[in-house]
Computed example of a mutant assay.
Amino acid sequence: MEQIKIDNFIKEHPGSSFPNYIHLEDKICADISLSILKKLNLISTTDDLMLVNEVDKLGDICDVVISDDENFNLKNTLSSLGVNYSKNVYINWYRYDDIDKMKIDDLINYFDDIWYLGSDDIDIFDESLTWIVSITHFGQVNFLKI
């Protein structure tokens, strides 16, 4: 998680702490990346950029587009996609080499404090690795069911 997000959260929520998260070690990120590659039958390569591009290519564009409108609700979006998620989810910030783990409830409740329109491209998934929801910096939502 970028420090600026934590700093901005503290400014906007005086007296509150930023939601707990764990930044995953490189080895764990590599294991997750390899597991996704295997599930997508792309094991012949270990190129992280290729994985990002394949997830983007294989995913379906959803009707949901996030804008400055505060009506976006991640929980409703996941529900409408038929996603069964576990208590914790992973947030990929780059090429599956910069991943944070946090409670889904915290991500849902503080989504606007975690994902920034205009700058963040993220992938959200859980330990089942059966789905990936990607959200682009311009608010497009893509869904990949694995």
Rank of each mutant, 00 (worst) to 15 (best):
W131E: 14
N20W: 01
K103F: 10
W93M: 12
Q3G: 01
L117S: 12
I114Y: 03
A30S: 15
N41I: 05
D113H: 01
L42E: 05
I122D: 05
Y85R: 06
T46N: 14
I10S: 09
I66S: 02
N53T: 02
S17P: 06
I108S: 08
V55S: 08
I10R: 12
M50Y: 14
I124A: 00
L40A: 08
K87C: 04
L74H: 14
N76F: 07
S134H: 09
S33Q: 08
F125D: 13
F125N: 12
D113V: 02
Y94V: 03
H13L: 04
D123M: 06
K57G: 01
K87W: 00
Y116M: 02
I99R: 10
I99Y: 07
L58T: 02
T46V: 11
N20M: 02
S86P: 07
D126H: 02
S44H: 10
D121P: 04
I10M: 10
S128M: 03
S35G: 09
L34I: 02
I108N: 10
T45A: 01
D98W: 09
D26C: 06
L49M: 04
N20F: 05
M50G: 10
I36Q: 00
I104Y: 13
I36H: 04
S17Y: 06
S128I: 05
K57A: 04
V133K: 04
N8D: 15
L81D: 08
L78F: 15
D63Q: 08
I91W: 06
T45F: 03
